[in-house]
Design a protein around this nucleic acid. Structure first.
Lengths: 262, 262
DNA sequence: CGCCACTTTGAATTAGCTCAAATTCCGTGG
DNA sequence: CCACGGAATTTGAGCTAATTCAAAGTGGCG
């Protein structure tokens, strides 16, 4: 624990955003198409009702920064982004990862200024909407308000799950659970969930999970050793997950009271 | 770390809710009255526009439970409540503490059912409002929507701060920061901030902060030894904080690179 | 080809955990 | 009023998971 050591601000590699946005083309298309459709519906609802501004972001681009005056909310149409919290004394903490369909900027509503940084981890497309314009549109289209609230609600629930993971799971399990959550997120968005491109360094993963980069590395090695994951590339950033269930099993084994074999 | 050991569900003592809701009567009344007024304004705005249901809750009372069908949001008028997250495998995690003016139930919006338990820690008063009625009222009174969004936004920002605290601070600093945050919360609500009644067991505090109850106890003892806090009662539940700034200094000293005295 | 950032792995250290025992507190009932 | 019992707390001692420090390996890019 104690993330103070390695800074996590360094940008990562630029990858084709197609990799993140490409829908799956496997047997079980219906489920994936449904999930993908949900995101598409939301995005359509927004663009029908509002003047959305669209822009492409590249790895390292800062969407908004802590302290900046709040005015817009952002919806991710493609790409992968991180949310970094900063403390007055200089600690930095990765508090969230965002995918297609996620909203950014809620933290700014309360105080009129954003409370953290939002940074692109690879190439992606961001739609931005003025908060006041959004509220006006919500008055006309109550369904829009539902979508907005659902997004905020999901964010709250997710943040709590993160806290629970950090507080109740040992390091190895936390890494496994992180991959499980990521795979699940991809599946929910209709993307292929058996393959994850870690667009973050070990230091960033460790910061997010409350452990050192060495511990992340050791945990990943252990997951490979136990054949729960497979690295597809020499760079060890392409994770293949043969069976997502195995990740859950691994987590359970970690928290199970040490088995007295015999 | 790893909270699995001691369960945190046991109810605590019933205390007069006046203790929590009583405004301060010291020199600096204006600031406190302003803070207190803000909460009062919000509550008035709500009751003017909506049919609020009010009820008194006692220590241990469950306001809502994970899995229960979502229908209402709750606003605390007095008292002190905890939010407990539950995992499918039985881990439980205290993910939030709520005071007067705070809202409960946002986690239920996204999935139509609450994602965690909300439990009273002492006697308090809760106002509940049907979510759909609230939305209808927001259409009439946009200011209400602002208040609602601000509450959700604050919750998101707070959850992130919690994660940062757990991930970046050593145990002693976490306990100090917890007290600092609590004192600050009281001050924001116009209550006296130099005195905190811990209506939680060491096990609950430890669960919330991601450490064992023994570590909490040792950290508190250290804070007493360093004269950052003083216990006012034999039960060691009434904490007096002579100077809130000293808590911040203590936190900084904990994370400062070990000073080579020489 | 060489540099630089990232990653892995090992070895030693330590913060925080587990286990254990003593103490205190508080409610209850005699 | 006091004795009793259970729950919570404190404190000590040893242990362990995860950290720190260190070194070697690897990959990508100019």
């Amino acid at each position: 624990m104690l993330n103070t050591a390695t800074p996590i601000t360094a940008p990562t590699l630029v990858r084709a955003m197609a990799a993140n946005a490409a829908p799956v083309s496997t047997v079980d298309t219906t489920a994936h198409e449904r999930a993908s459709q949900h995101v598409a519906d939301t995005l359509k609802l927004l663009s029908d009702q509002l003047a959305l501004q669209r822009r492409v972001a590249h790895a390292g681009d800062v969407i908004y920064q802590a302290g900046e005056r709040f005015s817009h909310l952002y919806i991710l149409n493609a790409g992968f982004f991180k949310i970094v919290n900063l403390s007055p004394d200089g600690r930095e903490q990765l508090v969230g990862l965002k995918f297609r369909g996620d909203w950014l900027g809620f933290d700014g509503i309360a105080n009129g200024q954003y409370a953290c940084d939002a940074v692109a981890m690879d190439t992606g497309e961001i739609w931005s909407v003025r908060y006041d314009a959004l509220l006006a549109a919500c008055a006309v289209r109550p369904q829009l308000l539902q979508v907005l609230h659902a997004a905020m609600s999901r964010e709250i629930a997710r943040d709590r799950d993160s806290l629970m993971s950090v507080c109740t799971l040992p390091a190895d399990a936390r890494v496994a659970d992180f991959l499980r959550y990521w795979a699940e997120s991809l599946a929910k968005r209709g993307l292929r969930a058996d393959q994850i491109t870690l667009r973050m360094t070990r230091a960033e993963i460790g910061n997010y999970l409350g452990m050192t980069l060495e511990t992340v590395s050791r945990a990943l090695s252990k997951l490979v050793r136990e054949e729960v994951i497979v690295f597809l590339d020499k760079g060890r950033r392409e994770v293949h997950i043969p069976d997502v269930g195995a990740l859950s099993v691994f987590v359970q084994r970690c928290i199970a009271p040490a088995v007295t074999l015999q």
